[in-house]
Design a protein around this nucleic acid. Structure first.
Lengths: 215, 215
DNA sequence: CGACCAATTGAATTGATTCAAGGTCCGTGG
DNA sequence: CCACGGACCTTGAATCAATTCAATTGGTCG
């Protein structure tokens, strides 16, 4: 339903650092990149699965809903991440763009080598998801937010300023909280001098150690 | 440290129904089965990874700890399940026997076909874990227990009586609750006539519909 | 400027936990 | 065979972390 708002980008080769993903890219038949504006559906629950998607820029959220509409975001994917891998031939989750997102579809080949690479990819993703189980099941709101911010810091190198692509609601649905709680925890961190909120979507981390101590 | 308490079982071929796992078994070099008594360590966090393990009988728990000792059980594996697949060359999680467990180690071959099968296996496991994220992040205690019991029912066919291999504490650490809460929810279900607690480890499900309605 | 959506903040509520006291079950040893 | 001890489970009461509800503020765009 959102597809009319998407359009093709140039098919220029992307610049991916991750050697694992580079190899994957080389062995698949990458299509042209597609642009999705804010909050566009990339694939829905029940859609035919099979394609892989490489994020060129922007952030994608992978979500799941309970019957009564509560949402759990299982992961955020940003530049260089690959998503869309699923067990069956139907997507059990749905993927949406958080901000403006460039995505390149990859068609898996039957190359035997390819399965190895996919397996590696799946296992890495697996490990991340599994770590998220501990966060959801056994961490407090403060710990969840601290972990979230530290993870964002790890993804980008060097800089201590985080540009949040997602809004409070998304963070809440990722961490198993409400958006009010997310807001309150950020305030607590601000009050303790751990972060500075440059703007609503810019967090400057002043004290990584204190963040780590929250966990 | 528990290895002295384990011993080899006969190397008789196991009877696995799942065709996926059967194929995997056929293509690997299955070792002899090993028996682990209650609460034995199968592998620890940091142990060298690489082997796969097929559960012959009994129940295994896959766990992770927070630095301060809170535990999250990421999954229970019972007869026919394969576990031990990991991203790196070190186990990031640890596996223990819940009750008396028979486990057969599989050594993955370099067969190209094997990667496909492993991939399938990883993706199925992936889907299950991802469903667990919703449970941990967005469900109430009642919903969590209802889901847990329904899942146990699905695994066994026909019978409405569940034999719990694990104790309250394990269930709690799997569902992100305390063991007291697990106990209280069971009582609530009993009071509503949804289940009958034949004994501490035998739950008779009287009303599946009511269970489903709790979710 | 006004409208709208997101974010913040406060107050009241609640679901689950923590703490504490019993109860049940089971294996062991007198 | 029964009493005892210990581990697990249940139950109650008090507490608390997070949510819900409600109001306000802030930011953005036409």
């Amino acid at each position: 339903m959102f597809s009319q708002t998407t359009f093709q980008l140039s098919a220029a080769p992307s610049t991916v650092q991750d050697p694992e993903v580079r190899a994957l890219l080389a062995q698949s038949q990458p299509g042209a990149a597609t642009f999705y504006p804010v909050d566009a559906m990339i694939y829905a629950q029940g859609d035919a699965a099979g394609l892989l998607y490489l994020v060129e820029f922007g952030t994608v959220r992978i979500c799941q809903l309970t019957p009564d509409g509560r949402r759990q975001i299982t992961s955020f994917c940003s530049a260089g991440d690959v998503f869309g891998l699923e067990a069956g031939d139907e997507h059990q989750f749905y993927a949406e763009s958080v901000d403006g997102v460039g995505v390149r579809a990859l068609r898996p080949t039957n190359d035997a080598n390819f399965a190895f690479r996919l397996l590696r990819l799946a296992l890495r993703r697996f490990a991340r998801i599994q770590a998220h189980l501990v966060l959801l099941g056994r961490m407090t709101a403060n710990e969840k937010m601290a972990r979230f911010i530290l993870d964002l810091l790890d993804r980008q190198d060097g800089d201590d300023v985080i540009n949040l692509a997602m809004q409070r609601n998304d963070i809440a649905d990722y961490l198993g909280l409400t958006f009010e709680t997310v807001s309150r925890v950020l305030r607590l961190m601000k009050d303790r001098g751990i972060v500075r909120l440059q703007s609503v979507d810019r967090i400057e981390v002043l004290d990584r150690g204190a963040l780590a101590d929250l966990i």
